[in-house]
């Protein structure tokens, strides 16, 4: 079991990459499906969880599931982003399309569960309602700052509103949204994203309609900056390495991965911190003394949220989506 479940990291190739048809089982054991077995063996270890980023281990799960979750998080978990921009006036140097594109890419802190999907079949006028659309407005005019310090060349001091930021987008609740979004008004997740720069006399006045969408339609709807995983590194010291060589061995890994014990022998302290740079394989002296690998069923997930929703929510939603997909497949007439 042990060896079979390790992806081999060799000098110039990766071996044993594919899993068996019966995930989590090796050839000489019982391969029957057992939900209880999976339930018992599945491990989740959360090592970091904050508003923007989460890092956790998912152990004893098949690649296909882990990858499906990753894929769903990137492209299928819905989130809110500006889709249509109505420009009333834009005298800045930035062109309307570019401005619209920039606004579209700003991650919004808006609960996607409060919105319904927009029916794209309907025509422009009746498409957007208070149920499916959030309206943001941006109205800025740049003026001279009469109190600007003398001799200043800093445009922020010389002018007012010389820099237009994401925080300048104002939420305009429509209809019942006044109630719905009372506690958590829609704002940009990162208030200091620069949208445009203005000079006195220039003005931007526009209205953005933000709707629900998925990352596969446009990257702006992706709720994650990135969601990915890596496999748990395995460093297997086959022969004892000691003395000066141990120090050199230690240097082949990022700090904290390999330590030297009291006997002067190198031992693996924390393989999880290894970046698998394969530096050790370059040096002939360690030939045969060490074997690198990665655990095939140990996924170290890293989810970076764009700020629209917390990473745990994204992950849970991805599981929900995966489940509904499975349900759909199960109920699919072709499958029966």
């Amino acid at each position: 079991m042990a060896d079979n479940n390790i992806v081999g990291i060799e000098y110039n190739r990766v071996t044993n990459t594919t899993s068996t048809d019966f995930p989590g089982h090796s050839s000489n054991e019982d391969q029957s499906w057992d939900i209880e077995k999976i339930k018992n063996s599945l491990e989740v270890k959360i090592s970091k969880l904050d508003e923007r980023e989460s890092n956790f281990d998912l152990v004893h799960i098949d690649t296909s599931i882990a990858n499906a979750l990753r894929r769903i998080m990137i492209s299928e978990v819905p989130s809110v982003a500006a889709e249509t921009i109505y420009v009333f006036n834009n005298t800045s140097v930035i062109q309307d399309e570019v401005l619209a594109h920039r606004i579209g890419l700003i991650p919004l802190k808006a609960d996607p569960d409060l919105l319904t999907w927009v029916d794209t079949a309907q025509d422009e006028k009746s498409k957007y309602t208070d149920e499916n659309t959030i309206v943001l407005t941006l109205d800025v005019t740049c003026t001279h700052n009469p109190n600007a310090p003398k001799g200043s060349t800093n445009p922020k001091e010389l002018y007012r509103n010389s820099h237009v930021y994401a925080k300048d987008l104002k939420f305009e609740p429509q209809g019942k949204q006044v109630e719905l979004f009372k506690g958590n008004p829609v704002t940009a997740a990162d208030p200091n994203i620069l949208i445009a720069k203005l000079r006195p006399g220039q003005e931007i006045s526009l209205r953005a309609h933000c709707i629900l969408g998925v990352g596969s339609d446009h990257a702006k709807f992706s709720p994650v900056a990135t969601a990915s995983y890596r496999l748990m590194p395995v460093i297997d010291i086959k022969q004892p390495i000691s003395g000066e060589q141990a120090k050199r061995f230690q240097r082949c890994f990022p700090p904290g991965v390999v330590d030297i014990d009291s006997k002067g022998e190198a031992y693996v302290k924390d393989a999880r911190r290894d970046t698998v740079s394969r530096e050790v394989l370059r040096h002939e002296e360690f030939d045969g003394k060490v074997k690198l690998g990665r655990k095939r069923d140990h996924f170290i997930f890293n989810i970076e949220s764009t700020g629209g929703m917390p990473p745990e929510e994204i992950f849970i939603k991805s599981i929900r989506l995966l489940k509904s997909k499975a349900d759909y497949l199960r109920n699919c007439p072709i499958g029966q």
Binding site: V14, T17, T63, R294
Partner: peptide, 18 residues
């Protein structure tokens, strides 16, 4: 890695590329 070559995972299968 010193050579600039990284270990990548396939986006489709999720497995490591060989």
């Amino acid at each position: 890695n010193y050579s600039g070559k990284d270990m990548l995972y396939s986006g489709i299968t999720g497995e490591c590329l060989q």
